[in-house]
Amino acid sequence: MSHLTVQWVALKTIVVKEVRRFTRIWQQTLVPPAITMTLYFVIFGNLIGSRIGEMGGVDYMSFIVPGLIMMSVITNAYGNVASSFFSNKFQQSIEELMVAPVHPATILLGFVSGGVARGVMVGVIVTLLSLYFTDLTIHHIGVVVGIVLLSAVLFSLGGFINGVHARTFDDIAIVPTFVITPLTYLGGVFYSISLLPEHWQWVSQLNPILYMVNTFRYGILGVSDVDVVFSFLMMGVFIVILSSYSLWLLKRGTGMRQ
């Protein structure tokens, strides 16, 4: 059996296993973001948004929808890989992969694909829900698909690194709670950074999530606080850096091999 055949079948196996995992527990993985985002649409979009009026040249509900969709994609892609990989470590079932002739790149690609699948699936669910509250028109489909996929890949890689380093279940909750959520809220989901004083605008531009949210918003509405091309380039660079680090961790067997 050729090396390539084994890697291809192994990749399919990991992806199927990962997708089956989060769809089997859909009550924990797919329903909660749908409920949370619906509440955001009702409270921030409908109730409060109606008093705010326009933001960035569009009504407030239309303004926050792209940010909330992107927030769902990011948190679910991250959470899926972090919890799945750590759970494999915790149950020692990661050894099933370690004793098999599976290349580290295949393992990484498999887990990241699982994270992307969940991120995109939740993103689609939230998008469908948003249609009940507002009319969505897509300004640039290529930008929408590209930024969603790249964001899901980037945060899946982040979740993977978190899962590798985590020693307890608390460790996989720390980063989402203390890093991702604050960065998402400060990443222009609910406001345009043009509302901020100049020095806070500068600080906001150090937040990578700002670029994802605004690029996605550009794809939907055609308005953005950031340069779209720069966003794609920046994400590409981050993906290369995090992929390389993840592969190094896998080859070294950090947290997996004694």
Binding site: M1, Q7, A10, I14, Q91, Q92, S93, E96, L97, A100
Partner: peptide
């Protein structure tokens, strides 16, 4: 030590491992 996914079905544990070794 038992090192399989405790939530997976018995047959899936075996079939998944076969996939890691390249079996269709």
């Amino acid at each position: 030590e038992f090192n399989f996914n405790q939530f997976e079905k018995v047959e899936d544990v075996v079939v998944t491992q076969a996939g890691y070794f390249g079996l269709s």
